[in-house]
């Protein structure tokens, strides 16, 4: 459409009990400043709540943050919950205090990208851009 490019909608969620939301909020703001529409869920959400919100908001990507070391349980649970709701096509990205050695397991479980502290925001934003691009292409392909 001329005059208006499509906006990417994304959802930032905090699964589990970890209340440190500085990273999640900074990311949501950075995404806003990069032109995304970023929905934020607040802290202490279950995987299922995050998935349900992602469906209602029709987002093109979900970002998760956890700093409590529970990522191996919580992130895959969100991927699973999205599938359950027929939204397995929505890519999930993760971030937090995550040791390198967990990366393989998370990728295996369907998390498309994982970021640890110190990653430049621009790089994370770009990953969202790419994930949304691929998601949109997949959609229009169908």
């Amino acid at each position: 459409m001329a005059g208006r490019s499509r906006k990417y909608r994304v959802l930032i969620g905090k699964p589990g009990l970890d209340g440190h939301d500085r990273g999640a909020k900074i990311l949501a703001r950075a995404l806003r400043d990069a032109g995304f529409e970023a929905v934020y869920t607040g802290i202490r959400r279950t995987a299922d709540e995050i998935a349900a919100a992602a469906v209602q908001e029709d987002v093109s990507a979900v970002g998760l943050s956890s700093l409590s070391g529970a990522h191996l349980r919580l992130f895959p649970a969100v991927v699973e919950a999205l599938k359950q709701r027929g939204a397995g096509d929505i890519p999930v990205l993760g971030g937090g205090v995550i040791p390198d050695e967990d990366l393989a397991a998370l990728k295996q479980a369907g998390i498309v990208e994982v970021y640890t502290p110190g990653t430049p925001l621009a790089q994370v934003v770009e990953a969202f851009e790419n994930a949304c691009d691929r998601h949109q292409k997949g959609r229009s392909g169908k």
Binding site: G16, L17, D18, R44, S68, G69, A70, L72, R73
Partner: peptide, 22 residues
């Protein structure tokens, strides 16, 4: 750990994945 800090027992559904972590 977080369940203890938030008043959940280790077998509470909210505690999944968090027991003994932080």
């Amino acid at each position: 750990d977080l369940p203890t800090q938030i008043g959940y027992d280790s077998d509470d559904p909210m505690s999944v994945g968090e027991v003994g972590k932080v």
